[in-house]
């Protein structure tokens, strides 16, 4: 149980790190006149990370609920 908790905390930290890196990339692209399509791709990647790993969108498709 304890290792699972550590795994989940580690995963949360890794997702946050990914979001932080993508935000830096996004800021660099935006302040260097990069095409808007790249910014949209970064935004979609960030949103995907949050939806899958923080919001656990997969849970909604389970017939019986468990935390």
């Amino acid at each position: 149980m304890q290792s699972t908790k550590m795994d989940e905390l580690r995963r949360g930290a890794l997702v946050f790190l990914g979001l932080a890196v993508l935000t830096v990339v996004e800021y660099y692209l935006g302040t260097h006149e990069a095409p808007a399509i790249f910014l949209w791709v970064v935004a979609l990647l960030k949103a995907g990370l949050v939806l899958i790993y923080f919001m656990h969108i997969g849970r909604v498709f389970r017939s019986e609920g468990e935390h």
């Binding site: 996004e26 800021y27 692209l29 935006g30 302040t31 808007a36 910014l39 949209w40 970064v42 935004a43 960030k46 949103a47 949050v50």
Partner: peptide, 10 residues
């Protein structure tokens, strides 16, 4: 995540 680039960067 979508509002930030729309307002500040794009």
């Amino acid at each position: 995540i979508f509002f930030y680039p729309a307002l500040y960067l794009i």
